[in-house]
């Protein structure tokens, strides 16, 4: 109603769309979120470019092969891929109007995200303890900034998801909370895809160099 009033006689999306798209105003917000993802993709693109330029500039520091532990990275990958699956289930449940199911799958997603971040932090702490901080070489500066930028994004996502869970408990599945859940899932999938690139370019690529 309010969005109809705000946007006047603009074309309303057809009813066969999923519920989060049916309200004009919420649908515009989803478009906006996609545009945000475009900018964030380019942020990561710039970070990847930096990494690609600096990967061989190790100064007196360690080589990529010395730094990376493929096992940990593989575990992180599996955790994050699983969380992409769980958020997918949560969105499916949202479209079935099953709020309890949404909550539990969201909680599981958050827990997986937390596990991912803590493994990453442990890995970083190990590197720093070995004397490989980001001041060591341009390669390590680029590596830490790229991977930590992703880790920071995941942390933000966790804070966002927890705030969303509170809103969900208070307000239930409304037009607005549905849209918020949906944009969160877009964000989470995006982070997952970025991690796939990091795993391929940084960790697997590091083996080849």
């Amino acid at each position: 109603m309010s969005s109809q009033a705000l946007h006047g006689g603009h074309k309303t999306p057809p009813q066969e769309l999923p519920p989060e798209f049916q309200d004009q105003e919420e649908s515009i917000k989803i478009t906006g979120f996609w545009m945000f993802i475009v900018t964030d993709v380019l942020i990561f693109a710039s970070l990847f470019a930096t990494y690609a330029v600096f990967v061989n500039r190790i100064a007196s520091g360690p080589t990529p092969a010395q730094v990376f532990q493929l096992n940990t990275a593989l575990i992180e990958t599996l955790i994050l891929l699983t969380s992409s699956f769980t958020i997918g289930i949560a969105i499916w449940a949202m479209r079935q109007n099953r709020q309890r199911m949404v909550t539990w799958w969201m909680v599981l997603t958050v827990l997986l995200g937390m596990a991912f971040v803590s493994i990453e932090l442990t890995e970083f702490a190990g590197d720093v303890a070995a004397g490989w901080g980001w001041h060591t070489s341009a390669f390590l500066s680029a590596f830490f900034l790229l991977v930590a930028a992703h880790g920071t994004h995941v942390t933000m996502g966790i804070i966002w998801a927890v705030a969303l869970l509170f809103q969900l408990r208070k307000r239930g599945l409304t037009t607005v909370t549905r849209r918020k859940l949906y944009t969160f899932s877009l964000y989470w999938h995006f982070l997952d895809i970025m991690w796939v690139f990091i795993f391929t370019v940084v960790y697997l690529g590091g083996r080849l160099i």
Binding site: T50, V53, R57, W134, T136, S137, A138, S141, A142
Partner: peptide
């Protein structure tokens, strides 16, 4: 402010980036 070495001349940094 944080001691990274992206664009300095030491530690493999590269200003042209």
């Amino acid at each position: 402010v944080a001691g990274t070495t992206f664009f300095g001349l030491a530690h493999g940094g590269m200003p042209m980036m």
